[in-house]
């Protein structure tokens, strides 16, 4: 088991390394392939008013003329020990972990990310809680009442939930509950601290429910399919043959086995969302990582885009790792072999 753990962690680290390399290459090769020279890149940081000579010097100082692998090495070094950006007028220090330095806003990327992670985490965590409860619950009920009117109506709602995009359901709910009824504010959020957990939750209810609706629908369908399968397993028949109550048969025996694949997908979904729920955050004007990515993309601010991509990749890889380890906890067959 320990060997398995060590192997998985090493694998995750290697994977993250590869992800940074690939992402970095893409972000710095793409402009180049588009015909932009190192000077063009540098000019974006110092402005076009300065002379060509000065731009070229800036490009050299920032290392844009170096081969890609040197630039990548510098980036990784920055991640580990921090780095200095000397772009002419001043030298900017970017402490570790340095995810890059935005010359457009003249700020290092990392503090921005740190400020936005709690917002995204609040959104993702709350929504996950809601969709897990409602989605799995709906799926169980649907499976047990297979073919009934209830099953069919629940599954129709679930189909709608899977098909309708966030910007539709989000804007619809905003227009009804915020603009129409005035129950919630029209966007933004309070940070979570001891004084205002209620306000924190209250402001997030609408985005939570909107986001959870999408996922709950998918989870309901998944749970239903899983339950239909496990309820036909021999061990469920054995549980009934023992004389267990139907409740115990369904929850302790049927659901227990059906939950494993759901757990896997849940981990990955949560990991993905922690990297930024772009549509939800944009729709509800939440200052999270997703919104940050959108702003950075629109401004063509490559260091920020790179930073947010890496942090998203990090969450996904970690979620993947956690899921695999949890699998071993849940399924004794994985644990022992």
């Amino acid at each position: 088991m320990l060997a398995y753990l060590v192997r998985r962690v090493i694998g995750a680290v290697i994977l993250l390394f590869i992800v940074t390399a690939v992402t970095f290459s893409i972000f710095f090769l793409v402009p180049k392939l588009g015909g932009a020279t190192a000077d063009d890149l540098a000019s974006r940081y110092v402005g076009k008013s300065v002379g060509k000579e000065q731009i070229h010097q800036t490009a050299e100082r920032l290392g844009f003329t170096d081969p890609l692998y040197v630039q990548y090495g510098r980036f990784v070094k920055g991640l580990v020990v921090g780095s200095d950006y000397n772009y002419g007028p001043t030298t900017e220090h970017c402490p570790a972990p340095c995810f890059g330095y935005s010359f457009l806003t003249q700020t290092p990327v990392w503090p921005d990310l740190v400020a936005r992670i709690p917002v995204t985490a609040s959104l993702a965590g709350g929504a996950a809680f809601i969709w897990l409860i409602t989605g799995v619950g709906t799926g169980i009920v649907s499976a047990l009442k297979r073919g009934s009117v209830l099953d069919r109506s629940l599954m129709s709602v679930a189909l709608a939930g899977v098909s309708l995009p966030i910007f539709f359901t989000g804007l619809l709910s905003l227009s009804i509950f915020s603009y129409g009824l005035g129950w919630t504010q029209q966007g933004g959020t309070n940070p979570l601290d001891e004084t205002n957990p209620i306000w924190w939750a209250y402001d997030l209810i609408l985005p939570w429910v909107t986001l959870a609706f999408l996922y709950a629908a998918a989870y309901a369908r998944l749970t239903r399919a899983g339950m239909l399968e496990t309820m036909n397993e021999d061990f469920v028949r054995t549980a009934r043959a023992k004389g267990l109550t139907e409740r115990d048969v369904v929850l302790r025996h049927g659901l227990r086995a059906a939950l494993t694949p759901i757990l896997t997908i849940f981990g990955l979904d949560l990991g993905l969302l922690l990297g930024g729920a772009i549509l939800t955050e944009t729709t509800f004007s939440l200052p999270g990582l997703g919104q940050y990515a959108v702003i950075a993309l629109q401004a063509n601010d490559l260091p920020k885009v790179l930073g947010v991509t890496l942090i998203a990749a990090f969450f996904i890889v970690v979620a993947n790792l956690v899921v695999d380890l949890l699998y071993a906890v849940v399924d004794p067959r994985v644990r022992i072999s």
Partner: peptide
């Protein structure tokens, strides 16, 4: 009938591997 199952009448099945829950001892 449920109260009789397991207590007054019990059953064993063909494939003991699939008839036991894999996650419980």
């Amino acid at each position: 009938v449920r109260l009789l199952r397991g207590k007054r009448m019990a059953m064993i099945f063909q494939d003991p591997l699939s008839a036991m829950h894999p996650y419980y001892t």
